[in-house]
């Protein structure tokens, strides 16, 4: 998954938008290089669930001096901003679309894919509904119960379902915790999923699975 340029992320149900965003931010933080993260989106994608809060983003593992947020009134402007940002080599671009309007069409997602491929940048498409898309993988995200002590919230936790994977199998779901300090996911140690890969060390289970 890490090597592929375009991924689509959405909530697994109504009310899980924050989790979908969190998963997206976590991926962006884990991939982010010196070229930074550009979060481009429609107004609707910013207004509904509150405004991005820098302190929270920093605690999530994003580097604030390498983050730009671009808000666009119209979807075409948001897509344009994402394309422009993808033209910067190595950039990680979050393209966030609101719930209103039609799902993104295939052509627009192909354009994003092309931009990302051409400039070795990567795009995370965050949108509630989806239609046909050129994305390499599609994830449906729900929150997962915390894994910490009873009086703590602990690390952000997700139930991530891979509903589409151009590169391999899909349909499986994972429960992962986001380690913001080390900027990587750790998969919950479910007996059936214990594989050699993560006994070896900090290989990201999502990457190993979806590449």
């Amino acid at each position: 998954m890490a090597g592929q340029p375009l991924h689509e992320i959405g909530p697994a149900g109504a009310g899980f938008e924050a989790s979908a965003l969190g998963f997206t931010l976590a991926l962006a933080a884990s991939w982010a290089g010196p070229a930074g993260v550009i979060w481009a989106g429609e107004d609707a994608a910013f207004a509904e669930e509150g405004a991005p809060y820098p302190l929270g983003l920093a605690q999530y593992g994003l580097s604030l001096d390498r983050l730009i947020v671009a808000r666009a009134k119209k979807r075409e402007d948001a897509l344009w901003a994402a394309e422009q940002a993808l033209a910067a080599t190595g950039a990680i671009v979050i393209c966030a679309l609101g719930a209103q309007g039609k799902p993104l069409d295939l052509k627009a997602s192909r354009r994003l894919l092309l931009f990302a491929e051409r400039h070795s940048s990567r795009c995370l498409l965050l949108m509630p509904a989806s239609g046909p898309s050129a994305a390499w993988t599609r994830w449906r995200i729900a929150p997962a119960e915390s894994n910490a002590e009873p009086d703590e919230l602990g690390a952000p936790a997700f139930r991530a379902e891979l509903t589409r994977n151009r590169g391999g199998s899909f349909g499986s779901s994972f429960i992962v915790d986001w380690n913001a300090h080390e900027r990587r996911f750790t998969e919950r140690a479910l007996a059936r999923d214990l594989s050699a890969a993560h006994q070896d060390g900090p290989v990201d289970p999502l990457w190993a699975r979806a590449v």
């Binding site: 070229a35 820098p54 604030l64 730009i68 910067a88």
Partner: peptide
């Protein structure tokens, strides 16, 4: 690192030229 600072400000310039300075922002603490 200097090169990427240029990259980031370059992106900011381009985005701002169309969306306007209020819509292309960086965090402050």
């Amino acid at each position: 690192s200097a090169a990427t600072d240029e990259t980031i400000s370059g992106i900011a310039d381009v985005l701002t030229s169309r969306l306007g300075p209020k819509r292309v922002v960086r965090p402050t603490v």
